[in-house]
């Protein structure tokens, strides 16, 4: 059993990125998601101030309606 198979739907990652503007912060956030292996990721929230961006990245493990690795376990 892999732990990631027990993720209900998504993994959120919150951090602060150093970036010179909001556009590059968004690019870095997307890059970070890829580097961490999130194949299906989105930036849920990003606020850029003073060359830093507080960001919340979401990696979807199971979108609604997809095949859930936990099917038959978590609903119990």
């Amino acid at each position: 059993m892999r732990a990631i198979d027990r993720v209900l739907d998504a993994i959120d990652l919150e951090t602060v990125l150093l970036a010179e503007d909001e556009r590059s912060a968004r690019r870095l956030a997307s890059q970070l998601a890829r580097e961490l292996g999130f194949a299906d990721a989105d930036i849920v929230a990003l606020e850029w101030r003073a060359n830093m961006a507080r960001v919340r990245i979401r990696g979807y493990v199971h979108r609604p309606g997809h095949h859930y690795a936990w099917l038959g376990q978590a609903a119990r």
């Binding site: 739907d9 959120d12 849920v44 979108r63």
Partner: peptide, 9 residues
């Protein structure tokens, strides 16, 4: 957030 489905967390 309108980019995807709501997460349980």
């Amino acid at each position: 957030y309108s980019g995807g489905s709501i997460a349980a967390a």
